[in-house]
Amino acid sequence: MSGPLIEFQNVSFRYGEDQPWVLKNVNFTIGEGESIAIIGHNGSGKSTIAKLINGLLSPQAGKIFVDGMRVNEKNIWAVRKSVGMVFQNPDNQFVGTTVRDDIAFGLENRGIPREEMIRRIEECLTVVNMSDYVQHEPHRLSGGQKQRVAIAGVLAILPKVIILDEATSMLDPKGRSEIVDTVSALKNNRHMSFITITHDLNEIIHADRVIVMNDGELWLEATPRQLFTKKDELVQIGLNIPFVARLAEELTRVGVELEKHPLNHEELLEELWTYHSKM
């Protein structure tokens, strides 16, 4: 493997001369095929990181590299080809009047020949399980379906990394699980990097690594499991601990020592029903 896919070198950013720094000297790297979660309280600078990665914003200090290219005016279109982004609001990123037209939008922008477009649209809609909705207008789709179309639209340009910026935060529980399932299926089947931005700790359990942001600073890099051992600190920087982790901690407090920190219901169950036999 060559160098990292994404690299931040001492990146600082603010929205204006007279505004406070939103990112302060941030450093991290993301490898090819890696699945990263970025968490942090509202306003901690997560979306700003996402927008810096594909050049929607540019830093006042430091350097950003994507796929071996420095992110700057000259490389911006090549960078955007490697980076696919799914935003928070399902409605405000749907450009086409139908599902088919919307997926075509990104392909048209890149001058992909029509036959190739048709092939890729079909393929990507199958991947996100939306083939039955090709001619649907956005107002006839649920939030989860719109976000799946957004993912298909991003997949169609064959990016190296997909950034999901709180892509599930405006969805109902059903839509949320649709997106989570779609993304985890993609992770298994494609060699691509994923950056999941969220302020919901429940969504980080599938990540290889978690970057925790606090007030514009990179607060911690850790695996999900390591992270859940720092519950008090996480609460302090304004994050909600998931139910399973909270329960596990309460159990530890009353003297029930669990072998490892459970990340989800299954692991917790496993720990609990084998607990007695280990005593």
Partner: peptide, 21 residues
């Protein structure tokens, strides 16, 4: 938001675009 999303999806005006419809 839409302007941002369009730019992120590589929109750079009419030059060099192909058309599906």
């Amino acid at each position: 938001d839409l302007a941002m999303a369009m730019e992120a999806r590589g929109y750079q005006g009419g030059e060099g675009r192909t058309k599906l419809r």
